[in-house]
Design a protein around this nucleic acid. Sequence first.
DNA 1: GTGTAGGGCGCG
DNA 2: AAAGCGCGCCCTACAC
Length: 609
Amino acid sequence: MIPEPNILTPEAWAEIECGGTVAVDFETFYTAAYSVAELGLWAYCHDPRFQAYLVAVTDGERTCVCAPSRFPWATIAGRTWVSHHRDFDRSVFERLQEQSAVPSGIAPAIWLCSAALCAYLQHPRDLVGAVKAVFGETLDKGPRERAKGRVPGEDYLLAAEISRYAARDALACLALWNHLERHWPPHERRLFDLTSDMGRHGLAVDWAYVRAKRLELEDLAGSIADALPWKPATSVKQFEAACERIGVPAPPSTSSADPGFARWLKKHIDSDAATWVRHMQRVRSANRTAKVLESMEARRMPSGRMAYELKYFGASTGRWSGGGGLNLQNLNRKTAEGVDLRRAIIAPPGHVLAAVDFSQIESRVLLFLAGDTEALVLFRDNPDADAYEIHARRTMGYAEPEPLKAWCDRTGSNLRQLAKARVLGLGFGCGWRKFIEVARVMAGLELSEDDSKGVVERFRDSNPRIVRLWQRLEDACEARDGDHYALPLPCTQHAPAAKRYVLYRDVHVSDEDITATVAGERVKVYGGLLAENWTQATARDVLASAWLRCACAGFVPVLSVHDELVFELPEATAEANLARIIALMETPLPWAPHLPLKVEGKLMPFYSK
DNA sequence: GTGTAGGGCGCG
DNA sequence: AAAGCGCGCCCTACAC
């Protein structure tokens, strides 16, 4: 499928006339310490060590590999370009233009990305994996690894090897694109572009806060670490050895969230070991927060904004994920050791931040997918109620006219807490053992075994549609034994040509279980999982639709976090525009007209939950 | 030294 | 009958 490269000199390339799409692939210098993961795309390309030593350009028939400054860029100006990880190659290209290594004024008509395309189709995103999955061919990554830390110009043999390697990668990129591109619908391409542009635009940051808090945290972590009788401070192994020395059994886990740790701590609360482990936890937490701040500082642009990357279709459900060394989708919601990470993200002068998120989106989507019409009607008739109240009214016998929250506050009932734990924990097949933990973490409830068994049983009895959904999906998957199972998503139900699915590849049914390949790994598949994936993927499409709708109306977000969009709005008109955004996001979707959407938005001088 | 697995800490 | 799921990054320990 991928032809052997026919390599031309730049002079020979300039002689020929060719049309159509060309693939562009740069090779740049990198090391472990100087890499995109360390710095993000922008800072990587603006570092003094930045060096792009090779570019491969191919139209499929002919390939030119040379130093970027030697390539005749005018021959491909105004044409369609494609790269595998476009944002990387585009950053390199634009930097080379800034450095005058490539003439300014050269640009493609459109620059496409075969990696994003592969991700959308739920193939591996990396080139080697994608080529293997799509064409069954194995690409060798050896030359690139051998080039790490070096500029191969110094080494003639390596240079020749790298040239062939770059040519072959460009051909593979073009082959993937041509083979798959018709399956990538326009609105998804638009989402990918919006994602790239959002990260390149970046966020306004309070740099004084970032620096001051990073220094504080580094000091704090250092002084707590000094109080521990071993190094490195966060070594569990050293901690266990120290426990042995004082005759205290080590905990099964040193994670603050682990139930086994909680039980251990209760028992040994007065021991030195208890003090030590809490020190370790504080050091880990402080270190993490300091590292996030450091990572932010590395991404500062001269404009004062911080560039970042978000990975389009990072999850198999289609959700975006963090990437490029800084994950903005998992910033702490609350302060950690006196530092509020979200506080570092601010509105630029004359603006306010608007953070707008869908309320209980997955809970609502699950009821929609399960076809629980009665629940959907309750949502429609009680627009102010949340999903927990609706659940309590629908299946827990709550019938007061008063809103559930007010009633619970007045009477001291924990009904709402229990409803919340049930809604969040039990919709996807969680069993009673796990639910004890879920109820504690999500709702602060301490359930006995019998309590938990009863709750799980009553939930399933009173939510037959959800339980039937698990069964229906599991049956459908099972029926695909020996083949792929494609779970169709409602967002494209009226556009069969561009249908979106969650894919389970190579389903295998045995006596014990069903397994399938998801994101390159074999996983157990069961009804609850399918229901969860279906729900998450559909909730992702809800956000995607809202994003497109907002962008179309001129509201382009600066950040997106699963069920949330963040905008910078000019102060003078912020209130009115926030109302418009909320209205846009709450407008029923053409592909899910009865899905009850509720959106909350607030205006803030800096980001927060 | 480099790559990787597993634990831990964060989020929706 | 039973099974929450989806991510990313840092650190340590360990194999090579």
